[in-house]
Computed example of a mutant assay.
Amino acid sequence: MKVLVVGANGQIGKMIVDKLQDSDKHSVRAMVRKPEQANALDMKDVEACLTDLEGPIEAIQKALEGMDAVVFSAGSGGKTGYDKTMSIDLDGAVKVMDAAKEVGIDRFIMVSAMNSDDRAAWDNEEMKPYNIAKYYADRCLKQSGLTYTILRPGLLKNDPATGKIEVAENLPGGAISREDVAEVVVASLDNESTFNKAFDLLNGDSPIDEALKNL
């Protein structure tokens, strides 16, 4: 499966790219917006494309040409304003969905966030615009007709992967390593148990394949 990773320069995005590059089942194209990011990927023999989520949808369509699936792990980051959050985390995500449909790609994996689906949990005013963006991006994906998987990880940590997780439609608060999130993304690509599912994701006691099989 040929996979475009949107947000390939993010912390989770980089891990997804590395895991796809090492995979014997998939190949990867990394979408980034800065030439230096593309150059760093080229040095690792990773195919890169320069495309800005705030640019025209036609450029995103071009980035998607020849792909079988797309992983959206882009984010505006904590140092930008609310305008960038809406432009990238919401409108950018929807543009990628629309572009995927235009070029005939059906498989779409979204890296979202725990509690993005629950307005009652948006008690942090600073995070509220991010939660709103994720809420509506996820909702648009569910209604898009694409074969989606929406991962809602808990508190993200930089610990090494454990290979063991807990997944469910709703889970209490908890944490998960970024590397385990990346592992779940790759494992979900062709796992039909994850098709058209949205679920919370934490570190737990079950091996990844077993946990996903029981969704």
Score class of each variant (00 low, 15 high):
P56E: 04
A198P: 03
M67A: 15
E47H: 05
E126F: 13
K44D: 15
D89I: 07
D83T: 00
A137F: 00
M31E: 03
A48K: 08
H26A: 10
E58W: 01
G75N: 15
N170W: 10
E179F: 05
E65D: 02
V103T: 01
V6A: 06
V28K: 05
E102M: 06
E179D: 05
R152L: 13
V111G: 12
G78T: 00
D68E: 06
V3N: 00
A99C: 12
T194W: 04
M127H: 08
L20N: 00
A40L: 08
Q143T: 07
K14H: 05
V5T: 05
R178W: 09
F195E: 12
N203K: 04
A63G: 02
V5M: 03
N131P: 10
I57F: 00
G78L: 00
K44R: 15
S27Y: 08
D117M: 14
S112F: 15
G7F: 00
A120G: 05
E65Y: 01
M43D: 07
M127Q: 08
K197L: 15
L156W: 04
W122K: 09
D98W: 03
V184N: 00
E210H: 02
G77S: 01
K62V: 03
N124D: 13
I12Y: 07
D24G: 03
G66Y: 09
S23W: 05
I165D: 01
V3T: 02
S193P: 04
K19G: 11
K44V: 13
D200Q: 03
S177D: 02
K14G: 10
R33H: 04
N9M: 11
A30F: 08
N203R: 01
D98H: 00
V167T: 10
D68H: 05
S144C: 02
K25W: 04
E192T: 05
G154P: 03
S206W: 10
V186G: 09
N191Q: 14
V17L: 11
D24V: 07
D180I: 10
K84F: 09
A161V: 13
M114G: 04
L90M: 00
Q21L: 06
L189K: 09
R119P: 13
K197V: 13
K79T: 02
D89A: 06
A69S: 13
S177M: 06
V6F: 06
L201Q: 11
V3W: 00
D117L: 14
V181F: 12
E125P: 11
A8S: 03
V17K: 09
L146N: 10
G77H: 01
Q11F: 12
V28T: 08
L151G: 08
M86E: 11
V103M: 01
N203Q: 06
V46Y: 02
V181C: 12
A182N: 05
D45N: 12
Y148M: 06
E126D: 11
